[in-house]
């Protein structure tokens, strides 16, 4: 039994004809880390709001924990954890109080929350900041507190909307480590991101969304194998020479605004041909294909929004 099942799911906002989500289907199994990838405006956040039972689907079916999110919204929200994009912490309360008071909203007792908050502060590496006002925390700390807050009710499913957007690299790595721990502990994670490395690191399975639809679905490895070659040769040319070089080189080439991507199973062989053709790239790099290549292939042309 899947924890979440969606079929033909749609979201249209009042007053517009545009479908933010235009009919998507997916399943999330228990213990899985499931990702929604896509450029801005792809419909990720709209999907997440429906999964959080705060936004009514406009069409299709959605079952969460085998219940209907519209008729059983309140009951379901009690079993979900949500990490919103903007932390929306209670600025008038301290770090610890944020956890305690939030737990009360779930019907948990003060006694329970006093103990639980200590445990969560430890997990979020915020024990030393327990008595501080939230406004004095760094962005990374706030996000960790928001994650701790989402765990007060030991949720069956944790929803994270762009969990590391706007954080510096160190803060991101600390956060990923915490999310790994949750995953190892069996928590089902659903996250949206537009960072490919994040998706590769964290997601067992993901869907790539574009213009409200699912472009493809699979494990990061499957997606790479399906859409791109084993290796990629990245070439940079002086501005203006990109297009011409791409045409001259031929083959499986993607011309991006800033560089050429040549897909090949043997990148060095292509690099050899570049030299033979008398092309002089400013830089040349052979690397393994990543999810970013898949992403650019599937949604690349819409990135220039």
């Amino acid at each position: 039994m899947a924890l979440i099942e969606a079929q033909g799911l749609e979201k249209r906002y009042p007053g517009t004809d545009v479908k933010a989500v235009a009919g998507i289907g997916f399943q999330v199994e228990r213990g899985e880390a499931f990702g929604f990838l896509g450029p801005n405006g792809a419909g990720k956040s709209s999907t997440m709001r429906m999964l959080a039972c705060v936004s009514r689907p406009s069409g299709g079916t959605l079952r969460i924990l085998d219940r209907d999110p519209v008729s059983h919204g309140r009951e379901l929200r009690a079993r979900l954890g949500v990490v919103p994009q903007d932390d929306a912490l209670d600025l008038q309360l301290t770090v610890r109080e944020n956890l305690i008071v939030y737990g009360l909203y779930f019907g948990l007792s003060l006694t329970h929350m006093r103990a639980k908050s200590a445990e969560l502060l430890e997990f979020a590496q915020l024990a030393e900041k327990a008595g501080e006002r939230v406004e004095h925390l760094s962005g990374g700390m706030r996000r960790r507190l928001t994650i701790a807050r989402s765990l007060v009710n030991d949720p069956d499913i944790l929803l994270l909307d762009e969990p590391t957007t706007g954080l510096d690299p160190q803060a991101r790595h600390i956060l990923w480590d915490r999310l790994f721990r949750l995953k190892s502990a069996g928590v089902t994670l659903i996250l949206t991101t537009h960072y490919m490395d994040e998706a590769e690191q964290l997601c067992d399975r993901l869907v790539i969304m574009d213009k409200g639809l699912i472009a493809d679905e699979g494990t990061p490895r499957e997606l790479i194998e399906r859409h791109v070659t084993r290796e990629v040769l990245e070439l940079r040319f002086p501005p203006g020479e990109q297009e011409a070089a791409g045409e001259k080189l031929g083959g499986d080439v993607e011309v991006l605004p800033d560089r050429l991507l040549c897909y090949a199973d043997d990148g060095d062989a292509v690099l050899g041909r570049v030299t033979e053709l008398g092309l002089h790239p400013l830089t040349a790099l052979v690397r393994r294909a990543t999810l970013e290549d898949v992403f650019l292939r599937l949604t690349g042309r819409s990135l220039t929004d």
Binding site: R77, P84, A88, L91, Q92
Partner: peptide, 11 residues
């Protein structure tokens, strides 16, 4: 503060 929005995802 978006305080009420943070309540929206609770019961």
């Amino acid at each position: 503060d978006r305080y009420y929005h943070s309540l929206l995802v609770t019961p």
